[in-house]
Amino acid sequence: MLSIKNLHAEVEEKKILKGINLEVKAGEVHAIMGPNGSGKSSLASVLAGRENYQVTEGEVLLYGKDLLDMAPEVRAREGVFLAFQYPVEIPGVSNISFLKTALSEIRAYRGLPPLESREFLKLSKERQALVEFDASLANRSLNEGFSGGEKKRNEIFQLAMLEPKLSILDETDSGLDIDALRIVSAGVNKLRSSDNAFIIITHYQRLLDYIVPDFVHVLYDGRIVRSGTKELALELEEKGYDWLKESLQETSPAQQRVI
């Protein structure tokens, strides 16, 4: 589904991603872990098409199409979804009409007519229930005055509505209490299928207790330095990122750079 090859990117001439390679197949869940500043969120931003990132090398293919060549909205219509680390508040845009617009745009791209109001409402109720998202929140302005947890739940509600192929969850667990984390994870688990894939970016192993990944990758200094199964996450949790930095230093000191 997604193929990232030797991806290099920078922001304001500062190199952030330094050669990422990653293959994601339908049905898989990949976790990307790493210390702060390692480039996790940057990878999410580059995949979603945030404009201030410059890709300097490498390619990203989604079902064989050049993802990096597409505008952010085209990526979304092709099935990429980014659950934002910091969802934006947009007063004056109603949550539900925003979703209706987004869904219509995506459907139009696929040659489908917009959903009838009744169908849309039905779908929306069903998906709200999935993430226990309060109907009163759905009718308010987009994220305006929402708590941190409500905003994150709204991201997953949107994900459920738009049914993307590839979902990238950027630190969705940060700022969530245990109950909210459980609800969000349960929602994601219900949405998992053999057709879609998830990239879960997180600093903590905790989320991976609930959403069990097929693969765990460790990002450090703009590169994936380790890949493994869910046990790798446990090891990291136990030993911390310093252990990783030290072990990297031992194995390949030449790769280390002073930033």
Binding site: G49, E51, V88, I90, G92, V93, F98, L99
Partner: peptide, 21 residues
């Protein structure tokens, strides 16, 4: 960017922001 990342085209996204304003 948030609106576009949900599939809403740039022109329409701007229109929505004008309306919100």
């Amino acid at each position: 960017f948030y609106l576009r990342a949900r599939g809403i085209g740039e022109a329409l996204a701007k229109e929505l922001l004008v309306q919100a304003f």
